[in-house]
């Protein structure tokens, strides 16, 4: 099972890519995908308490279960306007 991860703003800069493909295990949640990324990119840790997330173009909580093919987005604090 695989998901697409979308990263924006500074998270994209840290990872060096705006879109990643990552394998997921059964029972994976948004939070477990985030933890894996934070191991890969230690600078993500500072966003632990301030990110938002979305699954398939809907804002979603970190404990939300995810499935094969989902698009998971991690959003640092926003600054539009």
């Amino acid at each position: 099972m695989r998901v697409t991860v979308r990263l924006f703003a500074r998270l994209r800069d840290i990872a060096g890519a705006g879109e990643l493909e990552r394998p997921i295990a059964p029972g994976a949640t948004i939070a477990s995908v985030w933890r894996d990324l934070a191991r890969e990119y230690p600078d993500f840790a500072q966003y632990e308490r301030s990110i938002s997330s979305a699954v398939n173009l809907d804002y979603a909580r970190m404990d939300r279960a995810i499935a094969d093919g989902d698009e998971i987005a991690f959003l640092p604090p926003v600054s539009g306007g």
Partner: peptide, 11 residues
């Protein structure tokens, strides 16, 4: 610098 404001949470 990336400007970072509000943690987005529509609910």
């Amino acid at each position: 610098v990336w400007i970072e404001g509000a943690t987005a949470d529509p609910d």
